[in-house]
């Protein structure tokens, strides 16, 4: 008798739980699962936005087309170059500066540096790109500062005109915007390492350099891996900087025609939805592999003290 009433309460509560969860579940079904399935489906058809004719079934035709097209491979190259060229410096410098700030600064100056490094991240990426477009313009600050540092007055570095420099410029904007964010991530990671370990190492005669490589890096490995995968996923999805540089800055598109820009161009400008969907699926698969790698790695590498 008692048991049944108890079960009744449980059931009643369970109903509330379901009610709380249902709205989000519906949302995710409609705005995440349906679109990705739709994209997979559409990628098999020759579909255009405004065409009234029924879309023609192509099978893997779109995939074959994009894998043969130079523009797709150029986008893959641009995305890869951007991703590697951004996330490796981000990782190295943010770890370096986090260690500096953590070891050298007092509490006050630590807070100050964290906030100061983080301020660029407060700007939206469009504003960031707009500022850097002016800085990197031929008579802008970029040339002035570099020429002052290199003692070469009056040289134009062609930040936006030269293909290689253009790629570098987009990386620079991204690096500038996100360095503070990653510094903070690493400082949080560093704070979890118990100071007693360092004290023990110092007593045993370890130098700062040795402590860094033998203690900090191994113990921070989970954070490092997490941050690097996160940064990579972020970089793969970059769009705003490249869009503003090419649209508003008049920069050449080819060197920085990253995959998202290409999807946008193909799907919306050229109205080739099938092809754009095929590219989306390729991007999705790449990111899926990276995310799985992240889960695998972060599970196997947890540190206990």
């Amino acid at each position: 008798m008692k048991k049944t009433t108890y079960r009744g309460i449980e059931k009643k509560q369970a109903r509330w739980g379901v009610a709380f969860v249902v709205p989000s579940v519906l949302f995710f079904c409609l705005f995440s699962f349906y679109p990705i399935i739709n994209a997979m489906f559409t990628s098999l058809f020759d579909k255009r936005i405004l065409s009234l004719a029924a879309p023609k079934f192509l099978g893997l035709g779109n995939y074959i087309y994009i894998f043969k097209s130079a523009s797709f491979w150029n986008s893959m190259r641009a995305t890869l170059v951007f991703t590697l060229g951004t996330f490796i410096p981000l990782l190295v410098f943010s770890l370096m500066f986090a260690t500096f700030i953590y070891n050298i600064c007092g509490r006050r100056s630590r807070g100050f540096f964290q906030i100061a490094y983080y301020t660029p991240a407060v700007l939206s990426s469009v504003v960031a790109a707009a500022i850097w477009l002016l800085i990197l313009a031929p008579p802008g600050l970029g040339n002035q500062v570099l020429n002052w540092l290199c003692r070469t007055p009056g040289v134009d570095r062609k930040w936006l005109a030269n293909g290689t420099m253009l790629q570098f410029s987009t990386m620079l904007v991204y690096f500038w915007k996100y360095i503070g964010y990653f510094v903070i991530l690493f400082i949080t990671g560093l704070a979890t390492i118990p100071p007693t370990i360092y004290e023990a190492a110092t007593i045993d005669g370890s130098s700062k350099w040795q402590s860094f490589w033998r203690i900090t890096v191994p113990l921070l490995k989970p954070t490092i891996l997490l941050v690097s995968v996160m940064a990579m996923l972020q970089c793969l999805k970059t769009f705003s900087t490249q869009y503003l540089f090419t649209q508003s800055g008049g920069a050449a598109q080819d060197p920085i025609n990253v995959i998202t820009l290409n999807i946008y161009e193909t799907g919306i400008r050229n109205q080739r939805i099938g092809r754009a969907s095929a590219m989306s699926i390729v991007l999705f698969v790449i990111m899926l592999v990276l995310t799985f790698a992240q889960f695998k790695i972060s599970k196997s590498d947890d540190v206990d003290y």
Partner: peptide, 13 residues
């Protein structure tokens, strides 16, 4: 759904 990047589903959306 966290693994589905918005960029991949923007066209169906």
């Amino acid at each position: 759904t966290m693994m589905i990047p918005f960029e991949a589903i923007m066209i169906p959306l």
